[in-house]
Amino acid sequence: MPETELNDEQLVLRAQQGNLTAYEQLVRRHQQGLYAFIYRMVQNPADAEELCQQAFVRAWQKLAGFKGRSSFKTWLYQIAINLTLNFRTRTRKTEELSELQPADPATEPEADYHRRQQEELVQQALLQLPPDQRTALVLKVYENLSYNEIARLMGRSVRAVDSLLVRARTRLKTLLEPARQRGLL
């Protein structure tokens, strides 16, 4: 059976036997979703690509130890979350919202300019959240996972996830308040 017709479990079994073509199919299947998740965490295309590649490389290296207790996707995201959290704490410093360079209104149509400005404000606000709050919020808002799933991915309790999300949303509201008052949102 060709790799494209196999499910993740079957591909993992083949990849565990060293079949790189099977693993390539897993990469193709999950790369866009994982890249989007990581991009939302780091807000930088080059960093997102690097971390996404690292996640797939690490998953390949650890594949022999993957017992299938969770789905491959969950396991892959756990690897990516660990990489992203370490990356953030190791090398990045958040910028102040006031340092944001808005798009140039002279070069873009008004609607595009407004949309881009809004996106930049939201992205910068997201970056200013503590990493664990940002992770929980990104998993909830963009991946649409349940609290239970987020708790499993982050190795936290459901109650802790609830608390992280409440604090993330409260902080986000505070961070975006000045922009809201200036009529930018």
Binding site: Y23, Y39, V122, Q123
Partner: peptide
Amino acid sequence: LLQSEHRLLRSVTVPEIPPYFTARTLARIG
């Protein structure tokens, strides 16, 4: 306000994955 914040977050777009991502990842594994 909470709902509007949620919609705002959802409206943020993500760039397409860079071309040759798969090839570069597999080369790294190789």
